[in-house]
Design a protein around this nucleic acid. Structure first.
Lengths: 161, 161
DNA sequence: GTTATTGAGGATATTTAATATCCTTAAATA
DNA sequence: TATTTAAGGATATTAAATATCCTCAATAAC
């Protein structure tokens, strides 16, 4: 079980987009170059973010993407679910119904006990992701990434947005 | 991102094995028939449980599997990680290192901020799975599954163990 | 207006993992 | 001794992730 690499890319792209000057857009080309990932494929991740309403794209030269909400209003879960989908990781195929001892007409009152536990765990995972916003991420980065690198990256981004 | 279907099978098998009479073994054939899944493939999941020390297998006629610990001492996480592995779902490929603004010799003080959040969420998932044992599952089943079906299944299992 | 650039999105490889089957071996039992 | 079983290797099949390429329409720069 592994998340798509696009999830990682999308999160890093959002972190960058959160730092793009107001009213400006940053394009796929720049985001791909900045992260060293294939432009064409990254484009699919950005399209997923766009479809989910997290970013908005605009066309033409000086076009690209920008966040459509404030960084504080976008959570990790928003980004992860936009790219990865929100289908549960644990899929219950109701194998309890295959029990040969079970009368055909048996009706289950709800999801199976195994599935419920698995889904509760997934809810804990989601809740944790919902608790962290892009603003929180930005604050952490500001605290941890060396000043020089942050400034250089900001300039690099500003030049291309 | 989806867990293997073997995770579901393994959990249901463990629930059944928790009810096998003391000192008895239940074989792959019976477990496969009970759950309506292919015997050969289920065998791989049971082998994984065996390798992880959760169950022990014995050979020959009247052979099969039994839990190697009390149901209260086996958690969902034990079973899930035995079958699925314990590799993190989020794989950090360190794309921050591809930043063209970044001096070559930069040393990171720790894992990237994005990865840390993702891994914290996974820890929350794991913790939730660690908090539920096979004994807990058994108690839920006893509470929810109709008495008749439970008795019939127990008899079916006892006959084959 | 014309041209270059961009995101949206469809079509299609390529690669990898999940799913599944088959077979052999060695141990345990009847 | 013959049968049954788990262990495990080899291999096929299927599905998903990864990646590339192409067309299209919108936008901005010239």
């Amino acid at each position: 079980m592994q998340l798509k690499n696009q999830v990682e890319w999308a999160l890093h792209c959002c972190a960058i987009l959160a730092g793009v000057p107001d009213g400006r857009y940053l394009g796929t080309r720049a985001l791909a170059e900045l992260h060293g990932v294939p432009k064409e494929y990254l484009s699919k991740a950005l399209q997923a973010l766009s479809k989910a309403g997290l970013v908005e794209g605009t066309l033409g030269p000086s076009g690209g993407y920008r966040l459509s909400r404030a960084p504080a209003a976008i959570t990790f879960w928003d980004v992860v679910s936009a790219v990865e989908g929100n289908a549960p990781a644990f899929v219950c195929t109701e194998i309890r119904r295959n029990n040969p001892c079970r009368p055909k007409e048996t009706r289950d009152s709800g999801p199976c006990a195994v599935a419920r536990v698995m889904w509760e765990a997934e809810a804990a995972w989601r809740d944790r992701l919902k608790a962290v916003s892009l603003a929180d991420l930005g604050a952490t980065i500001e605290r941890e990434v060396p000043q020089g690198l942050r400034a250089a990256t900001s300039a690099w981004v500003a030049e291309r947005s």
